[in-house]
Write a protein that binds this DNA or RNA. Structure first.
Length: 482
RNA sequence: GCGCUAUUAGCUCAGUUGGCAGAGCACCUGACUCUUAAUCAGGGUGUCCGGGGUUCGAGCCCCCGAUAACGCACCA
């Protein structure tokens, strides 16, 4: 705004350019003054933050100063500051970054405040902030200009502080149990470990196309082959797919691998980890609320196989259906769209997604996924059509995916071959052949349990956020140019 | 990708039947020595999302486009 430009020009010409300031020593946070008022009353404190409101009374002014910890009221009096300083104080704008030195006291109305003895403009705000009462509501602006959203809406800040705490506690939990955090490449020559369309980019010096990773799985298993027995990686992955309330093109997952363990150990790990987080955040309360639904995360969580779940929620018993022809017939009776590429296991999965998934509100382990939809999981010993795999569903959404990792290089090669065939038939999400990964398995991978958890979704459930955009500082947005 | 709704001042929003562009907050000027959505008096600051069209006249009607929220599809 023009008025603020003029004010800045005035400051610059009087040798007080706020943008030349490099440092300010503050000794107290805004919230500390109210929290520790008993010991701070009458003492001189130094605070710094953003001026969020002004209430001028003539020869006395009140302002609210916000910092990360909270807010504190500032009281300035002409008699104490002197004519010139008080005039300078009155020129401050809402939005300005200000450092204040003063005495902690309580006003006549009882509000704990700072009686200003000196102050310094630390940075000039050149743009007016949104309205104080209604704040910034426009979703487009809130996501594109998250900095303004964070200034205006304190609950937004709280969600991200909680996100940080959750992530820290995940690391604490795993580090305490002897896991090691590792980093693997985000730029891949073969995108593997999941069924998803990748982002493609180009490396100039090598003159090859590369892919942004769609999972961390295959590299982490290579580390297990290499003897790194307990590893995890928490990081961003990228999938070139649709966006909605629970999907963003880049999102954060954690994958954890433990040698000499199986999917049962991963179940214990998952229950333990999530219980740890809930305990750290909510104390004893295990009931989470999300989109007006309550879910009790008290352990032990319910366990059922995918076939059982399909039977319970659709009435169809795949324990009795042994051929593809029968399965296709039943699927058509239930108006499910069967594609030519679908095998028996794909149809079981279709039934599960259509009928069971949305009903799984309390956290539930779903085990025994068909082999056709589990190209990296070990077969069940007693039934080669299914795998030692589980997913946890809560609030009708998938929370994690885990299995006893397939370590048989011959079996793995066959599964890749099927994926490649699907890809050649036009399925862009099918996997690619990864010869180096097969070579790694040929050197011998110990029996291993692995699990992948969607961090953003977990944070959504723990913070009550209804959209993934509300747990990402900068959700992916289409550029606005016209 | 499809459908639906929205887009007006810095922000939150009104805008009648197609007839001079509006309010509150913010901002500017002035008053005010304990306010807290301070108060009081005065001041309207605009590419009505963009581009066409219909009309004497369009914020409003029609067409094309942009972005977003929501729903659907996709995402094992």
């Amino acid at each position: 705004m023009k008025v603020r430009r003029d004010k800045l020009a005035e400051l610059v010409s009087s040798g007080e350019n706020p943008f030349e300031i490099t440092k300010y020593n503050r000794d107290t946070k805004a919230s500390e003054i109210t929290d520790k008022f008993d010991e701070l009353e009458g003492k001189t404190v130094s605070v710094a933050g953003r001026l969020m409101s002004k209430r001028g009374m003539g020869k006395v002014s009140f302002c609210d100063l916000h910092d990360l910890s909270g807010k504190i009221q500032i009281y300035a009096k002409k008699d104490d500051l002197g004519e010139e300083e008080y005039a300078r104080f009155k020129k401050l704008d809402v939005g300005d970054i200000v450092g204040v030195v003063g005495i902690a006291f309580r006003t006549q109305r009882g509000e704990i405040s700072i009686h200003v003895t000196s102050f310094k403009l630390l940075s000039k705000s050149m743009r007016p902030l949104p309205e104080k009462w209604h704040g910034l509501k426009d979703m487009d602006a809130r996501y594109r200009q998250r900095y303004v959203d964070l200034i205006m809406n304190s609950e937004v800040k709280d969600v991200f502080i909680l996100r940080s705490k959750i992530i820290k506690e995940i690391r604490n939990y795993l580090d305490d149990r002897g896991f090691m955090e590792v980093d693997t490449p985000m730029l891949n020559t073969i995108p593997g470990g999941a069924a998803a369309r990748p982002f493609i980019t180009h490396h100039n010096a090598l003159d090859i196309d590369m892919y942004m990773r769609i999972a961390t799985e295959l590299h982490l298993k290579r580390l297990i082959v290499g003897g790194m027995e307990k590893v995890y990686e928490m990081g961003r992955i990228f999938r070139n797919e649709g966006m909605d309330q629970t999907h963003n093109p880049e999102f954060t997952t954690i994958e954890i691998y433990e040698a000499f363990a199986d999917f049962h150990d991963m179940m214990d790990l998952m229950e333990g980890l999530v219980s740890h987080l809930i305990n750290k955040i909510f104390g004893g309360n295990t009931i989470l609320k999300w989109q007006d639904t309550e879910s009790d995360f008290k352990t032990p969580w319910k366990r059922m196989s995918m076939v059982e779940a399909v039977k319970e929620y659709s009435g169809v018993d795949f324990g009795e259906i042994k051929t593809l022809e029968e399965a296709i017939k039943v699927a058509k009776e239930h108006k499910l769209e069967v594609e030519p590429k679908h095998a028996l296991g794909d149809i079981i999965n279709l039934f599960f997604e259509e009928y069971a998934e949305k009903n799984l509100v309390n956290p539930t382990f779903i085990t025994g996924h068909p082999i056709e939809v589990s190209p990296l999981a070990k077969k069940c010993k007693d039934d080669s059509g299914f795998t030692e795999r589980f997913e946890v569903f809560a609030f009708g959404k998938e929370l994690c995916n885990a299995f006893s990792e397939l370590n048989d290089p011959f079996d793995q090669r066959e599964r890749f071959v099927r994926q490649v065939a699907l890809r050649e038939a036009g399925d862009e999400e099918a996997g690619m052949m990864d010869e180096d990964f097969l070579t790694a398995l040929e050197y011998g991978m110990p029996p291993t349990g692995g699990i992948g958890i969607g961090i953003d979704r977990l944070v959504m459930f723990l913070t009550g956020a209804t959209s993934i955009r509300d747990v990402l500082f900068f959700p992916t947005m289409k550029p606005k140019n016209d």
